[in-house]
Nucleic acid binder design. Sequence first.
DNA 1: GACGTATACTTGAGGACGCAATGATCATAG
DNA 2: CTATGATCATTGCGTCCTCAAGTATACGTC
Lengths: 164, 164
Amino acid sequence: MSSQLLSTQASSPGSGGLPDTAWVRFLRAHAALTRELSSRLEALHELTLSDFDVLVQLYYAEGRRMRRIDLARSVLLTASGITRLLDGLERSGLVARERCASDARVTYAVLTESGMRKIEDARESHLADIEELFGSRFSPEERDQLADLLARLPLAHTSEACSQ
Amino acid sequence: MSSQLLSTQASSPGSGGLPDTAWVRFLRAHAALTRELSSRLEALHELTLSDFDVLVQLYYAEGRRMRRIDLARSVLLTASGITRLLDGLERSGLVARERCASDARVTYAVLTESGMRKIEDARESHLADIEELFGSRFSPEERDQLADLLARLPLAHTSEACSQ
DNA sequence: GACGTATACTTGAGGACGCAATGATCATAG
DNA sequence: CTATGATCATTGCGTCCTCAAGTATACGTC
């Protein structure tokens, strides 16, 4: 038997004790959940969480297309992050690019037929995973409560310009 | 306006209808908060969030030292993640390594004097930032509520399946 | 029209971190 | 003592993502 009987969670050796606050739990929960969800999503559908996120945004968007910059803002990635992510989705044929007629600076990301099928296929299992690992932990009221509490947190500092 | 059994979607393709569930808010809040906190921490103290996390763990640990593997588990990094992170902290002189007398496989990470000063220095501003961006959004009761809700989420699947 | 500034997007460089493979060491059963 | 199987740690490799810089376009002002 190993010599260490020490816990995995020493509580208060020194002063104040190990911080186990809402914030720390938030951080840990995020790490654990995203790792598990992302590994399942990757294994079943070859998508990252961000891929899925973007595909869902497009799925619900008017005309199934969005300006790349709006896409970036809505999933909280940087402009360059979106470029590289869409590179991958384009290479996989899930998303196509389309130039904007009225403004040559902008490019749209459009969900392809294949992308539609992909997201409709992946949605089911992924939502089930989210439900298993996240949603099912709470009663309906608690879920609302949690959503409400989380909604108070600051969202975007990214050089806000809210108009189109 | 009744809640759908199936999900998460309360949207029609009208000007950006997208699922805005507790889970999505959780993801977005995490992205926004960590980005802001990490950028402040980096600017003021040249530490990443994970660096800080590890230093705090050591700060509260018995003898200000921990086995690397326990450190990894407590901050939810992989073993290799901890190795590389500690590489950095060692290079900066904030942490030292120490071999274990009774088990040659394990190495301890020990907080140095310089590391002590660093964490005591960084703690104040970082906790203030967390309070500003996170804690101050809630009343004391809500904070407890949130901590309670977050505590229900699964934490570590790390390594083998320990069936009860 | 020329000029200045804001916006959209891309690219190069680099950091953080996971996974899988490897080496070293311990523990235990034969 | 040796073979077998865990456990701790490190390393190679790849991925995701950010920042800073660069390019192209739009638009307001003179």
